[in-house]
């Protein structure tokens, strides 16, 4: 009986820690920071840290969107294409109207519309998410190349707009505020609202969810809409940083978003994970990219390291689950 008490106390402490989703990703974050600090004097400077956070913003916002979808047990392969499309739309509308707000609104509306289409096809027609969003990936990329004639669209003037991607507020890059606010809203939405819970329920066991009264179709449509909406927002930030919309931009970014979510502890099987981990995951991946450049290692090496980190992170997760299964 004593043994049992001790054991349950231990698992309670452990439970409390692991309940704050994403904290498991702090250890790899610490390790990569430590590694690059030791390898280069230039890494741990306030300038570089700000730079990393600014770069991380796009991945973090996309990753947040991806997390909603992965939590339902799905995937959104169209993210990279939607990033390019929404930034092109944003640039074109700003150029046509001279109003940046209209441009941003148009980009977000475009994202939401694509998300709704994905969601409807997946929820009602019951297409596999992989197939539907693979289709979206090709279609949206094709449309983007078509309407731009494969050339970049420069944003004219509008210093206020470039501030979104390049500006500083109280010494911190403006994109950082955006991703922190988006992240905070997403964490709140997932943990404190019924719809957030429904997202977990659908990913955990869709039959049980339906029989518990969860509106499964509605939940799926919301998740895919939020995913594309986040991507459109990331597209605006991306555009504001580069001041030119590239029709080929964001190619393969959906993989970065998936990687950020997975490194952050979100399970591709659905039902488990959260946005906090994804934000940390996005920062980890950005640090590796940035740090390897600073210490002067070729870019293919970046791919190798990111790949290894993903495998290690998921291995930890699998082992952790196996250990708790044996209890």
């Amino acid at each position: 009986m004593k043994l049992l008490d001790k054991n349950s106390q231990f698992s309670m402490v452990l439970g409390k820690f692991s309940k704050v989703q994403g904290l498991n990703a702090l250890l790899p974050l610490l390790l990569v920071v430590l590694f690059f600090t030791l390898m280069s004097d230039n890494f741990f400077s306030s300038y570089n840290i700000m730079n990393i956070l600014r770069q991380a913003a796009v991945y973090a916002i996309m990753g947040t969107g991806m997390t909603f979808v992965i939590l339902t047990g799905g995937i959104d392969l169209g993210q990279g294409s939607v990033l390019a499309f929404s930034s092109v739309i944003c640039a074109m509308v700003i150029n046509a109207t001279g109003n940046m707000y209209l441009g941003i609104l148009a980009a977000l509306a475009t994202g939401a519309l694509i998300g709704i289409m994905n969601g409807v096809m997946i929820a009602y027609v019951r297409l596999p998410a992989f197939i539907m969003t693979l289709g979206t990936m090709y279609i949206v990329r094709g449309v983007t190349l078509w309407i731009t004639n494969s050339t970049q669209v420069n944003v004219k003037g509008a210093a206020a707009f470039t501030f979104i991607g390049q500006g500083f507020l109280f010494g911190i890059p403006f994109p950082v505020y955006i991703f922190v606010i988006v992240g905070a809203l997403a964490v709140f939405f997932l943990t404190k609202t019924s719809t957030g819970r429904s997202i977990f329920a659908v990913g955990s066991n869709v039959t049980s969810a339906r029989l518990s009264g969860v509106k499964v179709e509605r939940t799926l449509i919301i998740s895919y809409t939020l995913s594309s909406l986040c991507v459109a927002l990331a597209g605006v930030v991306y555009l504001a940083r580069l001041t030119a919309a590239q029709p080929t931009a964001g190619n393969g970014y959906e993989m970065e978003a998936i990687a950020a979510a997975v490194v952050g502890g979100t399970s591709l099987a659905g039902g488990e994970g959260g946005v906090l981990g994804t934000l940390i995951g996005a920062i980890i991946i950005t640090i590796i990219r940035n740090g390897l450049v600073i210490i002067g290692v070729g870019s293919y090496f970046t791919q190798i390291v990111v790949g290894v980190i993903i495998v290690i992170a998921v291995t930890f997760d699998v082992v952790r689950q196996r250990v708790s299964a044996n209890k």
Binding site: F200, A201, N205, T207, R210, L211, G213, G271, E272
Partner: peptide
Amino acid sequence: PTDAINHGLGFLTENRKEEGLFLNK
């Protein structure tokens, strides 16, 4: 099922693992 629940019905299914519970939760 949502309508059923709103009308005050509760349904415990024969396969609790597949149709009743969220096992990982």
